[in-house]
């Protein structure tokens, strides 16, 4: 079961490039979207990461950042991000494999890949929305935007 709304997100530190790691704490103070996904290089143009890349300006309107997370290694991520011209970081949940996804309840043990699981965290690192999509179905971006709107609405009160 994926961690539910109201749960503080488990901290993590993952490589984003061969010599650079990011941790959850780096994103304190702004909404953060965590998008776990099964693998780089899925053979469709409108794949999940490509879609988020296109919607990135809308996420940024809410001051939000997005991180893609899969079990692929950093070199694979770099090649994939370059090929798809992605403008946000991909994190390698590579060693121990799927360790962070497991903490979030977003790991498919049978297949050894991350689930298609989405988490929207508030500026305090608390999960405010989560959703797990069937593995074959790209969940789109509408749920994320609604969650970000919910957060923004709360902040205004």
């Amino acid at each position: 079961m994926a961690l539910a709304a109201g749960t503080p997100a488990p901290d993590f530190k993952l490589q984003v490039t061969p010599d650079q790691a990011v941790s959850l704490a780096d994103f304190r103070g702004k909404p953060l979207i965590l998008a776990f996904y099964p693998a780089d290089w899925s053979p469709v143009c409108g794949d999940q990461m490509a879609l988020y890349n296109e919607v990135l300006p809308e996420f940024r309107k809410f001051g939000a950042e997005i991180l893609g997370i899969s079990v692929d290694g950093v070199w694979c991520h770099l090649a994939f991000a370059k090929d798809r011209k992605l403008h946000f970081p991909l994190l390698a949940d590579f060693e121990p494999k799927g360790g962070v996804a497991q903490k979030f309840g977003a790991y498919d043990n049978a297949n050894g890949i991350c689930e298609r699981a989405l988490f929207v965290l508030d500026g305090d690192g608390v999960i405010r929305w989560s959703y797990v999509s069937p593995i074959a179905i790209n969940p789109g971006a509408d749920g994320i935007l609604e969650a970000l709107e919910g957060l923004a609405g709360k902040g205004a009160h």
Binding site: G46, L51, N138
Partner: peptide, 12 residues
């Protein structure tokens, strides 16, 4: 495009 995003478009 944005109406598509809001409607749950997930690819083309």
């Amino acid at each position: 495009f944005m109406s598509g995003v809001r409607s749950g478009v997930n690819g083309t």
